[in-house]
């Protein structure tokens, strides 16, 4: 084989190897770290996995926020018009967290009724409804008012 051909072959092999390693790594990292979104009714129907990090979202049911008197544990119920899901959290709730408001929580299900959240997301803008929650509510027949701005 001529020298420049050999060089080119190495370059091609190197690139193929590099790209496959990169793709493999990306896919591996993705498979470990993508968080699927589930509605409370999905969770109740058993569609959500128990030991994976997932997202859940819904409206916070007024009057369900319960704080532990000793620790920083707090729990509240979210609802999508069909089912309820109890969310447990051991951190400070965001400033924009309000009863009746739509939130998205990331964490893991401990069983079909309880969700242990590692983060609770409420938005910068109080007029804003997380799109997943909006869609989840619409799907479960909650009338969604179209917001102008």
């Amino acid at each position: 084989m001529k020298k420049h051909r050999q060089k080119r072959l190495y370059a091609v092999l190197g690139t193929v190897f590099g790209v496959s390693v990169a793709v493999g790594l990306v896919l591996f990292a993705l498979s470990e770290n993508i968080n699927l979104f589930y509605k409370p009714s999905d969770v109740e129907a058993g569609k959500a996995p128990l030991d994976k990090t997932i997202k859940v979202g819904g409206l916070v049911v007024p009057g369900t926020v319960v704080r532990n008197t000793e620790t920083l544990d707090v729990s509240f119920v979210i609802r999508d018009n069909q089912s309820d899901l109890k969310v447990h959290f051991n951190d400070v709730l965001p400033d924009l967290f309000k009863e009746g408001q739509g939130i998205v929580a990331t964490g893991q299900l401990t069983d079909q009724q309880n969700f242990k959240a590692s983060s609770v997301l409420a938005k910068h803008d109080e007029n804003y409804m997380p799109p997943e929650v909006a869609r989840a509510l619409e799907e479960s027949g909650h009338p969604m008012k179209k917001k102008n701005d």
Binding site: V26, A29, L30, I34, L36
Partner: peptide
Amino acid sequence: GTLFPLIMEAFDQSVSVGAPYFNLL
């Protein structure tokens, strides 16, 4: 990592890519 949720949206799947993905790669 940024566009993946958008791609999945096309398949009617709502996902998000967590920080660990970026922090690893």
